[in-house]
Write a protein that binds this DNA or RNA. Sequence first.
DNA 1: GGCCTTTGTTCACATATCTGAAGCAACAGG
DNA 2: CCTGTTGCTTCAGATATGTGAACAAAGGCC
Lengths: 293, 293
Amino acid sequence: MADTGISSGSAVGSAALTNDVDADVSGASAIGTSPALGADSSAGVKSARRAVELLEAFGSNHDWLSLTDLHHYTGFPRSSLHGLLRTLRDVGWIESDDAGTRFRLGVKALICGTAYLDRDPVMPYATEALERLRDQIGYTCHFARLNGPDIVYLQTRESRTSAHLVSRVGRTLPAHATALGKALLSELADDELTAVLPKQLTALTELTITDREALRSELAFIRERGYSTERGQSSPNLACVAAVVPYRIPGTDAMSCSMPGERVTDAELLRVGSLLRDVAEDLSQQLRRAGIR
Amino acid sequence: MADTGISSGSAVGSAALTNDVDADVSGASAIGTSPALGADSSAGVKSARRAVELLEAFGSNHDWLSLTDLHHYTGFPRSSLHGLLRTLRDVGWIESDDAGTRFRLGVKALICGTAYLDRDPVMPYATEALERLRDQIGYTCHFARLNGPDIVYLQTRESRTSAHLVSRVGRTLPAHATALGKALLSELADDELTAVLPKQLTALTELTITDREALRSELAFIRERGYSTERGQSSPNLACVAAVVPYRIPGTDAMSCSMPGERVTDAELLRVGSLLRDVAEDLSQQLRRAGIR
DNA sequence: GGCCTTTGTTCACATATCTGAAGCAACAGG
DNA sequence: CCTGTTGCTTCAGATATGTGAACAAAGGCC
């Protein structure tokens, strides 16, 4: 895994809401999860872990959720959920309907979560760089960070002309399916890559790279050239170019441009690519000079 | 006991941290059940409450925080903090430095918190309306929501021309000091207003309204006219106009335009105001038709 | 280096949470 | 109106957490 000197727990892959637990809850309940996997989900303060796991459940489920929904999703006993939900609601991190029986994410989560952006000394510089970039090339520009097998969008400056934004601050996409992600993955050593990539490379479109070997050689090429490109791999009719901001080793952050897929020539893609690489390099120098890493 | 001079080696003693032992759980929602006893700070699942309170501490403190910093800030025993911090770190909601002794907010908080935006059925409509508005009048436009005595920015479309954004998704400002907030406060009944406003109306600039009576009469005027204006009350050299999106009663959401303060005439302010009111009304009708409330 | 202060970590007991099962409340179908 | 179903709430015992105090480690100051 990318060693940035920042340690944070590895994401224990939580599945979709279809995650049904109660196949056979009778009797012995869910006995200790098989110790096959090293990362035990039983360490630490139970209620604290459960509280944030609940928040994450709300984060990936945009409807009202009932106690029973959450029971199926998390596997926590209904009675335990009862207490947790009321607690989280009382502090404003989740909201309930009038009956107090359906829940969803609250504003506090937004307010607190977005503070991540203020906390990061990179952001002011990145924002400025994005604006320079957008003004130079006119396309929508993104700044994103690698988080495990995904990229997280941190900031966007939209095209002066085009319709509307594709992404949003805080949204994640599988790294292997985006120009941003491929640029960042290309920074990893072979075994780091293996460790980070999910078992199955999910396809966002028909063109998404889902073959590990194909991905590996693509990454090697990107590493050589210094920027990555992509046409319709993350979204139909969208072309993207991205370059790592090399102020850390391995790099964790990257910048990209998105443009309407059909109307963009290969030559244009390359032009933007090398420009992007230059802007990213400038930004890196600024950051290093400012002692940020 | 840190009886005097809590000089704490590093410069961590930032302003926000002055909140010494025994932090009160500042009442979040206006709907709050009558706090008969100090029960609200001791009810519910202790570790869960502490976990999110910790997250909020990180949300309002953008430096690395040590265990001792957090002890002073939250009043939780050091030994309890130890476990909580490790737990939160293991699940990725906070990050620690290499030594594992300083902490700050993690990416998970951003990812999960911003999901609030996806969860809200109003957002797609609001975004579209913002874009129409921006294209019509050219200024930077915001969509925000009232949360207790504050407004929270939910979405922004920036001016095609001006320099850079003043605000950010998820940021909060005191309602009484902004056009957005004044528009929303004008929806409240007199006693609701009293209940919501903080004891002391803090001033963001010299022009911020800090007198409750002055604010009340301003709100009455706004209620009549259907939109609010403001010059330099939230930020020097910035003028703002805002109108409530009346799809709920009382309204909770509003739209605004921000423009460079010096160059904008009063007439322009009013022109934008009535235009804004119209767009907000259109949006409301859309929302009501879509069954959103 | 020696001493002192500050900060992080560990431990065993007191205490609060977690939990399964039982108790209700709401609702649909006959 | 009764009855079965589903889902939320409550309760007392089993269990895991919270806590103060002791311990260890890091750093500052002569």
